[in-house]
């Protein structure tokens, strides 16, 4: 599913003294099949944007919106807001938001804190039963789906299904929570800081899992992250949010060439980009796509060429 957003604006508590503009006329397109990264400071609008994608934040109906604003003479009407996820038009009030949420899975920050059921199996099945409840899925169907989802996140169904989710380790809890989202096989999977609070190995493992899920379960994956290394290693495109606007949408290989600009925005850059600029200062230019693997290969090639 292709995601198109145009002229999207969102103001929290509009019309009160607490009004805060979180998104300011942003436009962004995510193609199907991407592993899309979103970076930016806290409060830059990343989370607000992704919450639009499965209508947790609903847009005012476009038509009504247009009528409401009385235009003064000679004033140009504001450009219409467009937000489409595949065939779902999110500006239309009659869209089936239920079906939308089945197709767009959402993993929030620290998803392990939303576990609630008595057993892992029940918790993972929660989403599945909610979305396929009308067709009364049989016990076997549920079990198959839960088994599949748990195995997709690298957990052993037979070992874990009947345990209480509160008895698991932090990393396991998080995987169970991810399984609880992907169990409905959403086409788009959105993850807000999926690796936050995990140890370095856990982070790598989480990213590896996401790649596997990207290949087999969900066509498009969108991750919000603070970790530039994570972004450089994994993403096909990156959007940089700043104060409710989108500053860049670029593949990481091009984005991190603008190391100076990113640093001036107060954002970090991946280790490889730091090394590249350090080498540049010493007169060695390395032209890599900022993944560790490519960087090492290019540097080794340089050495080989120099010797």
């Amino acid at each position: 599913m292709r995601i198109v957003a145009e002229h999207l604006t969102h103001i929290y508590n509009d019309g009160t003294p607490f009004a805060a503009k979180a998104l300011d006329d942003i436009s962004l397109t995510v193609e199907e099949g991407e592993f899309f990264g979103i970076i930016g400071h806290t409060g830059s609008g990343k989370s607000t944007f992704v919450q639009h994608l499965n209508a947790l934040i609903r847009l005012p109906s476009s038509k009504k919106h247009f009528h409401k604003k009385r235009l003064k003479k000679g004033e140009i009407p504001p450009p219409a807001t467009v937000l489409k996820v595949g065939d779902f038009d999110l500006t239309d009030k009659n869209t089936d938001f239920y079906a939308l949420r089945r197709s767009v899975g959402m993993v929030f920050q620290y998803p392990e804190y939303q576990l609630f059921a008595e057993t892992v199996k029940e918790d993972v099945a929660f989403g599945y039963k909610n979305f396929y409840g009308k067709g009364k899925p049989s016990e076997e169907e549920v079990t198959t789906a839960v088994r599949g989802a748990l195995e997709a996140v690298g957990l052993d169904y037979d070992e874990i299904a009947d345990k209480s989710p509160f008895d698991l380790s932090g990393g396991q809890k998080r995987r169970v929570a991810v399984a609880g989202v992907i169990v409905t096989k959403p086409e788009v999977l959105v993850l807000d800081e999926p690796a936050a609070g995990l140890d370095p190995l856990g982070k790598q493992e989480m990213m590896r899992l996401l790649h596997e899920i990207h290949g087999s379960w969900c066509k498009t994956v969108i991750i919000v992250s603070h970790d530039m290394d994570e972004i450089a290693e994994n993403c096909t495109h990156v959007a940089v949010f700043e104060e409710g606007r989108v500053r860049y949408v670029l593949p990481p290989s091009e984005l991190f060439q603008r190391a100076e600009e990113l640093l001036s925005l107060g954002l970090d850059i991946p280790l490889t980009a730091k090394l590249v600029s350090a080498l540049k200062r010493r007169g060695i230019s390395v032209d890599c796509d900022f993944t560790t693997e490519d960087f090492i290969r290019k540097v080794l090639a340089l050495r080989g060429g120099g010797a």
Binding site: Y98, R101, M106, F108, V181
Partner: peptide, 8 residues
């Protein structure tokens, strides 16, 4: 929000 996203 999280549970709504899971169809609650």
């Amino acid at each position: 929000n999280a549970q709504t996203a899971r169809g609650a």
